Every structure is written in C-alpha cells, then in structure tokens.
Computed example of a mutant assay.
Amino acid sequence: MAAKRPLRTFISTATCSLRAAQPSKPSLVRTSACAFSTTTPTRGPEYDTETAERPRWQQTPARMVAPVRTRPLPRGPVFRVNEDPRRLDDAYVKMLGPGGDKVLTDEVKWLAVTHKSFDHGRRGFNDRLAFLGRRIVSLQTSHALLSSQHVQPQPDEYGRTPYLHPALNGLPGLSHEAKDAVLDKAQLSTIAERYNLDRVTRWKPKRADNLKGSGVDAVLATSLYAIIGAIALERGGDIANKVTQERILSPLGFTLSSEYSPGV
C-alpha cells in the first residue's frame, strides 16, 4: 500500500501537467492590430482645401469617381454640356425677365437644369424639384381650363333645355385628356427652347446625333418643371404660381390677368 501512493501521486501530477499543456480555446473577441498603431492617418486628396471649396455642381465628388473606367467610350459625336454660368444666367433672365438670374441661388440654378442622366447623377439631379413643379403647373392648368371652358347648349330632339350654370361651365376642362393635351411634353419642350433651356440643360443623350430619339422633349419638360419647383421652395408658392401663369400657360394660349415681378 505504501508503494502505490508515490505512483498515484506521480500519475496525477503528470495528468495535471498534460492537461495544462493543451491549447486553450480560441477567444471570440479579437483585438485589432490597428488599435495599437501609432501611425498618424493621412488625409486623402478628397479633403484638399481647394477641392472642398469648389461647389457641387462644378465637380464630381472625389469619393464617387471610379479608379478605372469599366465601359468603353461611346462611338460617334460627343454631347457637350454647358459649364458657363453666364449662359445659364442668360437663360434664367430670358425665362423670368430682368433679375431672373437672382431669383434662385447658384447651386439651385444648376440643380434645376441637371438631369439624372448627367454624370450618373453624382452631382445631384432635378427629379424632386420637377415633381413639385409638375404638381404646381398641373393645378394652375386646371384653373386655367376651368376659367376658359364654356359649355354650349346642345340641341335636344324633344325640345328640352339643359340645365346650365356658370359654375359648371368649366367641367369639361377637368378631364385628363384636356390637361394632357395642354401639358404635352412636345409643347413644353418648345417653350423651354424659347427660353434657351435646351442650351443649358445638362444631360447625357443616348445618341448625340439623335436628340429627339434620346428623349430631349421629356428632359426639357423636366427642367421647366424643376425651375417652377425650385422657385416655390425658395421664393414661395405665390411667385411660382405667377411664373407658371405668365411663362408657361400664357404662351400656350391662356389669357390671364395676373402680373409677375421677379423681384418680389
């Protein structure tokens, strides 16, 4: 019995030492080597002072530029967009009258004429402004149709006289067909060309030699709507309504008595 005790002690001691030598389980918490780095992080070129001071409409954000071009350059002529602020101001003056270049801020003036196809939308685009402007123009068109439509009594084979009331004269103008005929994108595109918006609208056509087939009418109508929406946000709904009446509906043949002053 006395001889077995040292052997058991030796075995138990060896077992304990073997268990301690087993590799420990990997911990779920990993310590990042970056936490112990003493290197001062360097600022990239996108934080350069000169680059940061340039407005958004004038440059593509540096972090949104791909390092390598993945698509080949398109064949055929290249469509050049306007980058001259003076030409843009001339278009606003022609549309809004004297002082029209001061109605909107510089950033919004460029945003209102920038389509989402230009620079892949990285400099901002005018979809939201156009959504608001389209609602304003649509409402003013409904008012114009209601005031211009007059129902004529139709002959009746039984000699009956239909009921007529001045408040019901404009009902035919509430149809979608009547409004769509007024706000046809081809007509709005013609008005936009009158104000030289076709020379300052920034977009990328599918084919530079076929602007009509690339959807230039829809693009110019969007710019027209976007300018109305921008005026509503920066100058108020009353000014936007007056601009719609004087600069869009009047050229379409509607006679309105309101007066517009861009300096208001």
Rank of each mutant, 00 (worst) to 15 (best):
G173Y: 04
R199L: 14
T114S: 12
Y47N: 14
D119S: 07
R247T: 03
L111P: 00
H150S: 11
S142D: 06
T222Q: 13
K25E: 04
A2M: 10
L197D: 03
L233F: 08
R87I: 12
A33I: 07
D209Y: 08
K116G: 03
E46Q: 04
Y195K: 01
N196L: 15
A66N: 08
T60I: 12
P77G: 09
S17C: 06
V81S: 06
A35Y: 11
P251T: 08
A221M: 06
V216G: 05
I231Q: 01
Q22L: 15
S117I: 09
F254Q: 07
R54N: 08
L249Y: 04
K185H: 15
A20I: 11
K109Q: 12
C16A: 14
T13E: 02
D84N: 11
L233C: 10
L256P: 01
D101G: 04
F125L: 06
A240N: 01
E193F: 07
P153R: 03
D106G: 05
G44C: 14
L168Q: 07
R128E: 07
D156Y: 04
L104C: 06
K116Q: 10
D238Y: 07
L88S: 09
E193A: 15
G253A: 08
L88M: 15
K116H: 08
E177K: 15
G44N: 12
P262T: 05
V81G: 01
R87D: 14
P251G: 13
V137M: 06
T9Q: 13
E50C: 08
R5K: 11
T51N: 10
R207D: 13
V113S: 01
N196V: 11
A14H: 07
M95N: 00
S117Y: 05
L111E: 09
N210P: 01
T201N: 05
L183S: 04
W57G: 01
Y195T: 05
C34I: 15
H115W: 00
V264P: 00
L183N: 00
K242F: 02
C34G: 08
G229T: 00
R69M: 11
T13L: 10
W110K: 02
R160G: 09
R87Y: 12
R87F: 13
L224M: 12
K116P: 02
Q152A: 14
T190I: 07
L249N: 01
R235H: 05
P77F: 12
D156T: 06
T42F: 08
W57P: 00
L129W: 02
E234M: 04
K242A: 11
P23T: 10
A232G: 03
P153C: 13
S24Q: 15
G124W: 05
T141E: 03
S12Q: 14
G100I: 00
Q140G: 07
